[in-house]
Design a protein around this nucleic acid. Structure first.
Lengths: 355, 355
DNA sequence: TTGTACGCGTTATCAT
DNA sequence: ATGATAACGCGTACAA
């Protein structure tokens, strides 16, 4: 069925048949190459010729065929998003940022989830990149923290920008946030409210973001001269469920912490949920601070005080670093490589209960 | 800067230089076309030759170049997801479903948001489709409900599958859920619990899903012989905020409804939030049912009783309809066109308060 | 500053 | 059942 079919309409019906570069060249009375130069904004080109060609292009409504360009250039006009299924909202926000950056360009976004626990991960990505010949990729945490992935991109000649919670590459290849500093401020706020017994629900082992946020937490405490018993730190893995169970572990402590910081909002929502189950009132008995400012933060009761992670801006910046120099001649580091987080105060924090 | 660069490594370094169809042909002692036939599973082909060629393909690790195929075929190996920013979780679930279906195939997914309020929407999509020459697209509600969009796909020769809450195309081009029936069951459950004064928060005008869900609501009530005063129906647009304000409007009624059904979970979460603000206890004073079963439903307190919308399965099915016949010879309607929703009972429903 | 001729890797036509 | 040859539309040496 693959041999005789497809008679549909290659050459096209009546007015169909998109104009090609040849049509433009012919009507403009120049050669293909000249048209090509116009398309690719070659600097060495007579202004007059350019305008003439551009006029014809407009008149014909000509647009270069991406498939042909891809073949000739050995590179596609696609920006890839490679991620390992971190939380849903984050992936979506990143997509939004990338799409904003690609808006109005000839680039499209292709999404590629991978499995960081698979031993084939690197091979998969390599096959993907070599086959699709993407223009560039945006790497999301946690896999963005893997240096071998970045090297792989280099090897196969694919541009890349990594996103993360700490600068682990040069400005052209990295967009980071200042998680550590942001968390320090959040915890300092808690301390200023009078809290002394503050619990932490950590992110998963091996996540750089988890580490940075814990460091910020510890910084604030030690700056204030507050000790941090190991028992006040509970493990989590960024899911709602681990937030619930970690919170319950913390609730069993005596004395019980008067405030808990969770390394992300999902877990913070888990704390609030667990508190409800146990009859612990937030914020009267317990203050809670999350991280990310995903929609759920404002949609639960009480609305969560949290650190807003500028993920959309980060992604937008990352994508612009990728395509900026071809769409508007920007250098890859004209775009910021560090976006600041900020504390959003809502209803889940209050002074500690009086004893 | 576009003229003299790119000397990087076209032909490639040492072992680089991916094998092409020519290499395979030469080493197998056949012509390009024969190799091409093997790749495309042409039926008319000597079994012996096929095996010989396949052996060489495996030995070389040859994989056809998608860019070249795209140019020759006039069609890309990309499946598009066209949507108009409905809720975030939904888009993500759809992506997951599509990616599951594309897993292991040569297809990739490209995401394309559009603006249904723009007068340019159709033109934008047309330009996109004509330029990228996608293999096919999945259309999400609400724009999937727009027949002119479907016609457009036909015109430009792009396969499509529409997703929605009601069958508005033939089985090969549609994957639907049974929202109306599902809502009827949910409301019937409420009635069986003893509720008589049941409020509805509607989805936005013009959304087919909103209409179907309202019809299911009305069906259940009229079947039970319960009247539905207009005042018990509040408008919403699927956002948390409209859920809050609609709930407040319903709360002002006297007598106050003992239960409210919201056309999606976001608005249902808004009801719960508003109830908390007003000191109305859920489920003791008020029962709430949502629709979708997005993560927030299980993450707020009390956890929401809701209708689980099988969006991931729907998307998977849609994508399989698109690519099935080329990857495993399935007919487009070997995949189900109707997926059933089901009621998930959690903690937001109880018998009405006794007066 | 512009044009000629050819290559990119695959599929389609039409013969054999 | 298989092969020679011409598209597909664009970019690039290299020449002019």
């Amino acid at each position: 069925m693959a041999e005789k079919d497809s008679s549909s309409d290659r050459g096209g019906s009546k007015r169909s048949a998109k104009p090609t570069i040849n049509d433009v060249a012919r009507l403009a009375g120049v050669s293909k190459k000249t048209v090509s130069r116009v398309i690719n904004r070659s600097p060495l080109l007579n202004e007059e010729t350019r305008e003439r060609v551009e006029a014809v292009i407009r008149r014909l409504g000509y647009v270069p065929n991406p498939q042909a360009r891809a073949l000739a250039l050995g590179r596609n006009f696609l920006v890839g998003l490679i991620h390992d299924n971190p939380n849903a909202q984050m992936v979506l926000n990143v997509q939004q940022g990338i799409l904003e950056a690609l808006q109005g360009t000839d680039f499209e976004m292709v999404v590629r989830p991978v499995d960081r626990n698979s031993s084939m991960m690197l091979d998969d990505v390599r096959a993907f990149l070599e086959r699709q010949r993407l223009f560039g990729v945006v790497l999301l945490p946690p896999i963005s923290e893997d240096d071998s992935l970045a090297r792989l991109c280099d090897e196969v000649g694919c541009r890349y920008v990594r996103m993360g919670s700490v600068q682990l590459d040069d400005a052209a290849h990295m967009v980071a946030s200042n998680d550590r500093e942001a968390v320090r401020e959040a915890i300092t706020y808690l301390i200023q409210m009078g809290h002394r017994l503050i619990g932490l629900i950590e992110g998963p082992d091996g996540f750089r973001s988890a580490r940075e946020r814990r460091l910020g937490f510890e910084d604030a405490l030690s700056t204030a001269g507050i000790g941090l018993p190991r028992s006040l730190i509970a493990a989590g893995n960024y899911t709602f469920e681990t937030g619930v169970s970690a919170a319950n572990r913390l609730f069993d402590l005596s004395p019980r912490p008067t405030a808990i910081f969770a390394s992300n909002d999902e877990m913070a929502a888990g704390i609030v949920y667990a508190a409800r189950e146990r009859g612990v009132s937030v914020p009267d008995d317990l203050s809670v601070i999350g991280f990310d400012d995903t929609p759920i933060a404002a949609h639960i009761w009480p609305p969560l005080t949290t650190v807003r992670w500028p993920i959309v801006s980060m992604a937008r910046s990352a994508a612009r670093k990728l395509v900026g120099d071809v769409v508007d001649g920007e250098a890859p580091d004209d775009q910021p490589s560090m976006l600041a987080s900020m504390l959003i105060r809502r209803g889940s924090v209050a002074p500690p209960p009086r004893t």
